[in-house]
Simulated scan of single mutants.
Amino acid sequence: MNFHFDQSGPLYQQIADQLEEMIFTGIYREGEQVPSTTQLSQELHINPATVLKGMNQLVNRQLLEKRRGLGMFVAAGAQEKIMETRKEDFYHDYVQSLVAEARKLNINEAHLMNLIKRGYQNGSTED
């Protein structure tokens, strides 16, 4: 388990983001136990309250579930929830701005679709 921290945001958010990525990529599978707050805080040399705050974000998003006396487990459907959230984020973060820029350049929908197809065929985003 490799966590990497930087100055991009609060530690608890980075913990939540990285645990989410581990669930998404299948490092932690649905129904599987994730390391305890104590384990993570000791391994990462971070305050347990900080780790718990990050993990609770995932509990609130129903990606992790607490099992009394047992610990935290990846919730059923967690990977699919992450996928759907990321698809929606992709639309808002990339597609909307792509379409807006295409309109500024007078690129119509058909031409834009051809450019996207070309990008898939070439395996790159270069023109």
Rank of each mutant, 00 (worst) to 15 (best):
E32C: 01
R68P: 07
G119H: 01
V51R: 03
I82F: 00
T38Q: 03
M83A: 07
M113P: 01
L52Y: 01
V74K: 04
H92W: 00
H111I: 13
V74Q: 07
I116N: 04
T50A: 15
M83D: 09
T125S: 11
Q42M: 09
L52R: 10
T125W: 02
G31T: 02
Q57S: 09
G119M: 05
E65G: 11
L63D: 00
I46Q: 10
A110V: 14
N108F: 01
R61H: 10
L63N: 14
K104H: 14
Q7R: 03
Q18A: 06
Y12Q: 06
G69R: 12
N122D: 07
N60P: 13
E84S: 04
A78I: 09
N106L: 10
L115Y: 07
N106A: 15
F5A: 02
K66D: 01
E65K: 04
A49W: 00
E101W: 04
I116S: 10
A110H: 05
N56K: 06
H92D: 11
A110Y: 02
Q33K: 14
N106P: 12
D17N: 15
H92R: 05
L98M: 15
Q62T: 03
E84I: 14
D127K: 14
R67L: 10
N60V: 08
E20A: 06
A49K: 06
E88R: 08
T25L: 10
I23T: 04
S41I: 04
L19V: 15
V99R: 08
G9K: 05
I27Q: 11
N122Q: 07
M1F: 07
E30F: 04
I82L: 11
E32F: 01
A75C: 12
D6M: 02
L19M: 15
L115P: 00
G26N: 04
L58K: 03
L70M: 11
G31Y: 13
Q79H: 10
E20Y: 00
N2L: 07
L19Y: 03
S41N: 05
I23H: 02
A16L: 10
D127W: 13
Q7G: 12
H111F: 10
N122F: 00
A16T: 12
A102T: 12
G69Q: 09
V74M: 10
N122R: 05
R67P: 04
E101N: 13
G31A: 11
E126C: 02
E126D: 03
V51I: 14
G77H: 00
I116K: 01
I46C: 09
L11F: 02
D17L: 05
L19S: 06
R29C: 08
E84V: 13
K53H: 02
T37F: 00
K104A: 06
G54F: 03
E126A: 08
M83C: 03
V74L: 14
T37Q: 12
F24A: 15
F90C: 01
D93Q: 02
R86P: 03
Q33W: 05
Q33E: 09
M55L: 15
L115K: 14
Q96Y: 08
H4L: 11
F90K: 00
Q79K: 15
I107N: 01
Y91W: 13
N47W: 02
I27W: 10
S8E: 05
Y120T: 04
I23N: 12
M72E: 02
K81Y: 12
E126Q: 03
M55R: 13
L58W: 12
L112H: 03
R118V: 07
E20D: 10
L40Y: 06
Q57V: 08
G26F: 00
L105D: 08
N2H: 13
A76Y: 15
M83R: 14
